[in-house]
Design a protein around this nucleic acid. Structure first.
Lengths: 192, 192
DNA sequence: CGATCGATGTCAGTCACTGCCATCACCTTC
DNA sequence: GAAGGTGATGGCAGTGACTGACATCGATCG
């Protein structure tokens, strides 16, 4: 028999999500999270770098998935299409976890500190995407811009997926179309 | 004669910037900043909400300036052009403070925590721009996307302005052109 | 069976941040 | 011009996030 219950990390994540949802992020202490997970505060900090990070444990997985999607895009595919396809391929990732993802999203929306951390994660994702785009021939500036644009498109699509449900992939495509339209119209107007 | 030296807030900003540059953000304590500014730690927290915020005191001014630029754009001007014009009009704001802005930028670049806060400020700027775009007729989704895109363009242009100097307005326009090109090419390819 | 390892517990300590109350130059009011 | 109000500050105690150092002990390896 194991000396401790297994999966302390997972228990900490669940305890944190529940407590943040019940009573808010700021009014929850790390000691409380640890207690509910059946470990000490010190053990919490061995598994999660700080109080916020516990809600972002899966973010490396998503980043790997989406970056792999860009790297796997065929050569003939445009950069923007590669991004859209990569995000669309993450659909299963979210569908499999919908209840958790939605609950987490509501907790994030309620806390300025947590939203701040989410922005940092999205910025890291954008940087990773930019690197992948450079690897397929985009100039540094274009790659960086498109990385940011891709993340903005995804974030917008994600928002409506949380609210309305449906196909995340389809929503990513719709939002990307709306963006291309907006930029294209602008450019046309500008060239008049 | 005043009971205390005036402009405690400004002294705190200068002391913080200097100390962060000298010895790094993490290894500087708020007590140190307060001491160098000639006040107590308690007074620091009356002027700045937390240890990071001291470097973002002017950010509301920039936001007002750029938002006013969008609101002041003529009706016939496209949304993207309105954004580009608004950021270009902030050129003086940056030129007047170049030494401070560049030093601050280097401090930000060296600290993960400070970069995180900067992302939050840029997100607030993007949201304010989106509201201004909605006021001139953009749909909510388009406004939000273009807000993010505008900030991404500005951030890229700002980066090269810090490194190379020159005209920030011209760099904003160049980056916006490169973005429109990238999206336009993508869209064309997609329509083939 | 003994040495090592890995995950945890324990404890003391630093530092960011807050609430509460005192102080005191300056200003208003009668 | 004396009494009282105001605003910016100091002082101090307290909470909670986070860290370093060391001890514990079941599991594993040789």
């Amino acid at each position: 028999m194991a000396r401790w219950e297994p999966d302390a990390r997972g228990r900490l994540q669940q305890a944190a999500l529940d407590l943040f949802a019940e009573q808010g992020f700021e009014t929850t202490s790390v000691a409380q999270i640890a207690e509910r997970a059946g470990v000490t505060e010190r053990t919490y900090f061995r598994h999660h770098a700080d109080k916020r990070e516990v809600l972002f444990a899966g973010s490396e997985d998503l980043e790997e998935l989406v970056v792999a999607g860009v790297r796997g895009a065929a050569d003939g595919v445009s950069h923007l299409e590669a991004l859209v396809g990569a995000f669309a391929s993450a659909q299963d990732f979210f569908d499999e976890r919908r209840a958790f993802v939605v609950a987490r999203h509501q907790v994030l929306a309620a806390s300025r500190e947590l939203r701040e951390r989410e922005l940092a994660k999205l910025a890291a994702l954008a940087a990773a995407l930019a690197a992948a785009l450079r690897a397929r021939g985009a100039t540094p500036v274009t790659a960086s811009l498109l990385g940011d644009v891709g993340v903005a498109v995804f974030a917008t699509a994600f928002e409506s997926w949380v609210v309305d449900g449906g196909s995340l992939a389809a929503q990513v495509r719709d939002v990307a179309r709306e963006l291309a339209q907006a930029i294209h119209d602008d450019t046309s107007v500008g060239e008049r």
